[in-house]
Design a protein around this nucleic acid. Sequence first.
DNA 1: GATGAATGAGTATTCATTCAT
DNA 2: AATGAATGAATACTCATTCAT
Lengths: 195, 195, 195, 195
Amino acid sequence: MPTAGPARGASARSKRADAVRNQQTLLDAAAEVFVTSGIDAPIRQIAARAGVGLGTLYRHFPTRADLVTAVYHHQIEACAEAGPKLLAEAASPFDALRQWVDLFADFLITKHGLADALQSDSERFATLHTLFLDRLLPVCDQLLGAAADAGEIRPGTQPYELMRGIGNLCIGRDSDPRYDPRRLIGLLLQGLRLS
Amino acid sequence: MPTAGPARGASARSKRADAVRNQQTLLDAAAEVFVTSGIDAPIRQIAARAGVGLGTLYRHFPTRADLVTAVYHHQIEACAEAGPKLLAEAASPFDALRQWVDLFADFLITKHGLADALQSDSERFATLHTLFLDRLLPVCDQLLGAAADAGEIRPGTQPYELMRGIGNLCIGRDSDPRYDPRRLIGLLLQGLRLS
Amino acid sequence: MPTAGPARGASARSKRADAVRNQQTLLDAAAEVFVTSGIDAPIRQIAARAGVGLGTLYRHFPTRADLVTAVYHHQIEACAEAGPKLLAEAASPFDALRQWVDLFADFLITKHGLADALQSDSERFATLHTLFLDRLLPVCDQLLGAAADAGEIRPGTQPYELMRGIGNLCIGRDSDPRYDPRRLIGLLLQGLRLS
Amino acid sequence: MPTAGPARGASARSKRADAVRNQQTLLDAAAEVFVTSGIDAPIRQIAARAGVGLGTLYRHFPTRADLVTAVYHHQIEACAEAGPKLLAEAASPFDALRQWVDLFADFLITKHGLADALQSDSERFATLHTLFLDRLLPVCDQLLGAAADAGEIRPGTQPYELMRGIGNLCIGRDSDPRYDPRRLIGLLLQGLRLS
DNA sequence: GATGAATGAGTATTCATTCAT
DNA sequence: AATGAATGAATACTCATTCAT
């Protein structure tokens, strides 16, 4: 029956459209609230910011992890995709690494509270951890390997450790103006260089 | 009559002895619980771990800040006193700096959860922050200055930033065996060197 | 189509209906508990009496003052409105005053515990105080003024003092059968008469 | 009387003296604290004010009622004894009544919080109630009777009711400068007069 | 006797989660 | 599907009372 009647189609689509719009509204609201009140903000606050009922939020994101993960999914993706591209375009593998680290740090610094969540070993953020590692670890590994192969950095640095370290350095960056994680990350990379 | 003093003293202090013992028990329990459940662990949990009533804990440490501060007071002191001594004894100022940083990091790593608390900008840990900075910042500053004066490291590194960075690197060190903050701290110091 | 309105209205309000019912249940329960256990009764007790969760009570009345005020709002209003009406209808201004005072006292006596709350200088009942004075003081003032103008009572009695006095006389009226505030209030008014 | 041994007597007396002194210190402290923080003030606060251990307070006054009663015992006594004296000395029975009521009110007003305690039907103040009524009710009754017999006031007023009323009027007298219980008490007595 | 440390019951409040409408 | 009212577990904190020293 290919005659899915326009009426029925439109109606089905319109509902879908609403749901999609709600989902996006929720993601935006969550992103904002995560920045303002941290990744542990009351669920109710996020729903309120989205102008949506509590139940609606739960329907779309049954657990907080689902919401957090969804909020940062796109940006993790973008960061992952930037790796190979930088490697292809940059002046040297180390330069690519440096630029990618900048990108990664910017992401964490911009989304305040994200670094904190990454560090947290709470069960609640397990899926976020997984997402981060699954997508970004191979990219970081590739960049480190290329720089090491080129003799620009000492070999043996583990991508997990480096990413964790950068993530940690980004924690709480706005609590004191004297603290600039970027400067320290620069020192870290400098310490990696061969000579 | 050299024995009159001690005997009388001991007897006069007999009641105090219990209280002191309790206080120490509480400090130990708190230190353990802070590791296990973070620095925000329920007060009740700490009291339970100490095998002590809730009121007893409140009597000794009216606010959580009092407890946290007391827990780490001795070790901060020891760390502060180690600075000048290392500077006097070590082979070079940079070597003294390195050893002191090791000491500092060991402290933070051993007292898991402490690094987290230091990062927290919660009003609740203000006194802990103050204690840390008041005692350790001048020490770190002195070590950095000496190493810079000796031409071993590039000048201009701020002690606050360095300490914060080291502190951050120590966060959550036991969530994953792949992560060793000491290695990263080594890189950071390496990046500080002049050539 | 006269039936469309009501039906739709009822349906739209269906959810509200529950909440409203709960709110009323809570007000009734609070009124009873205030009588039984005083205006400082545990919140939990009120919720239990209403057969409602703790959170529900907090949702409807975030602070105790909100609850107390809500409990007595209607009756204060009624009392305020009775003043001018009595002045218009009674045989004389003093007679109107007497009847209004009866009304006022009845209110306080019926809602046992209310008089106590009025007396309390706790910050918590500030809004209740305000409500009382804002609404009833002008009324009492008008009645006193009219009676004085008519030469029935000595001039100069302040409405605040009179209301406070009546309120105080109504405190604890049921602790002993020998005590009847109405008799004393009668004496007070008698003492006010000119001759 | 061979056993009056000075040594034993002195020692026995000295201990007694200490206890008595403590008891008085506690009574004074309690009186002050009752004024400051009400009759429900924390027991600990009273002990602290007396510069005495908590246990000592409990030894002397096992229940709060005991303490409260003891605190006001002397003054109740004085008030009771003043009745007959005034009746003998005053110009008329009504004048004696008036003066005694003044005395009674002064007592309640001075010991802020006492009026509140008298009103409270809490089990805790039962003994205080008893003390008050046992001693003062007959006195008030005698004064009322004399004034009635002299034809100065209408007969039939019950002393319990009058005392309760005066007590109630004295409640919370310092919460607002517009409220002066003495004025209202004056009206009450005026209302009692025959012509 | 005196002391005050220890105890724990009682109360307020927040917030994740469920579920009737 | 959406809503948000209702729920109650979790937690902090106070203070009367007991009891070891």
